[in-house]
């Protein structure tokens, strides 16, 4: 009887914290397989840095999915904002610089990139909330627009030779801790406070859970929906800036496929496609779970082609269980 009870409560904990259990399980598995070698501080640090930019995208799309939306434009919007940021941070003596001969203060590339991301967010949000376009289609369209704008803006060239100040935004450290990790931590706290402790954050869950009931409860569904895409856009702008800064360049391949990585990560992190479910800790754990899988496989010498395949399977399995968990009840 006692063991049965214990089993029962274990089962409950596992189903409630699936994301964490998966993450810790993978961590243990990896440390056993590599006799702890994979989990030295240096490697962990690299993993955190590698996943940091994706975290911003994941936080953005995570909020959107909570409202039962989706955003396919992430990859190219991040690519565009990275290119824009880079163009304002090129060394003035670089002959092929977009604004050759000009030096901009450090805040310009950052603000312009965030504004570009925000503008795309508002555009997406307007289409979804007031234009009543399905989010899938609206963001599919803006994905192509973002890609087009990026190519027009950069003439399909690499935006390189970035100044050191700009690169230091992401390449610097505070003591042993890389700047990037600090940025992610700040973003996580802000989004957490927002979703958990503000009216609008709570409204997002209500809109995702039952838009009609949300409307009747006095929530301005259209405005809030537009804002969620806007906030996500701002996060993509930050992601673009950091990515350009970390890579020291931007081109048309920057952030390619990031939308799928971000959507997969938050889904693995328990943000349900059925809307109204998910939290910040899940989103972040999702990002690092996916990162850990990638990193673990590389460390173990698994061919990168197989990594792609394994990633796909993991996404399908995660959504499968998500659907089982929520679909049946309604």
């Amino acid at each position: 009887m006692e063991t049965k009870k214990l089993l029962g409560s274990t089962k409950k904990v596992v189903s409630q914290y699936t994301t964490w259990v998966t993450f810790v399980g993978l961590l243990l598995l990896l440390s056993i397989l590599t006799q702890g070698n994979a989990l030295k501080w240096n490697s962990v640090r690299n993993l955190l840095i590698a996943e940091s930019v994706r975290s911003f995208a994941a936080l953005g799309v995570g909020m959107i999915i909570i409202t039962k939306g989706i955003d396919l434009s992430i990859g190219y919007v991040v690519c565009l904002t990275a290119s824009v940021a880079a163009s304002f941070a090129q060394n003035p003596d670089y002959a092929s610089a977009i604004y050759a001969g000009h030096t901009f203060p450090l805040f310009v590339p950052i603000l312009v990139a965030i504004a570009a991301g925000g503008a795309f967010g508002l555009f997406n949000g307007w289409l979804v909330a007031y234009g009543k376009l399905p989010p899938f289609i609206a963001t599919l369209g803006s994905m192509s627009i973002a890609k087009g704008l990026q190519l027009i803006y950069t003439r399909a060239a690499v935006v390189g030779s970035l100044n050191q100040n700009f690169k230091d935004i992401s390449q610097g450290n505070v003591g042993p801790i890389p700047n990037l990790i600090i940025y992610v931590a700040i973003a996580v706290v802000i989004v957490w406070v927002f979703l958990k402790h503000t009216r609008q954050g709570t409204n997002f869950y209500a809109i995702g859970g039952n838009p009609q009931a949300a409307r009747v409860s006095g929530i301005n569904v259209e405005r809030d929906l537009m804002m969620v895409y806007f906030y996500a856009g701002l996060l993509y702008g930050i992601a673009g800036t950091l990515l350009a800064s970390r890579l020291g360049l931007a081109n048309s391949l920057t952030a390619n496929g990031m939308e799928l990585d971000a959507i997969a990560a938050v889904t693995v992190g328990g943000v349900s496609q059925s809307g109204g479910v998910g939290n910040v800790s899940g989103m972040i754990v999702g990002v690092f779970t996916m990162g850990l899988i990638n990193y673990g496989m590389s460390f173990l010498g698994v061919d990168s082609y197989y990594q792609q395949l394994v990633k796909g399977l993991i996404i399908i399995v995660a959504v499968y269980f998500d659907m089982k968990k929520y679909a049946r009840r309604s």
């Binding site: 709570t202 859970g209 039952n210 949300a214 409307r215 409860s217 009840r329």
Partner: peptide
């Protein structure tokens, strides 16, 4: 259809308005 938020708890369902 337009009353409950099925996946939210009693407390959240009560206080939403």
């Amino acid at each position: 259809g337009s009353g409950i938020f099925p996946l939210m708890n009693i407390s959240a369902n009560t206080s939403i308005a």
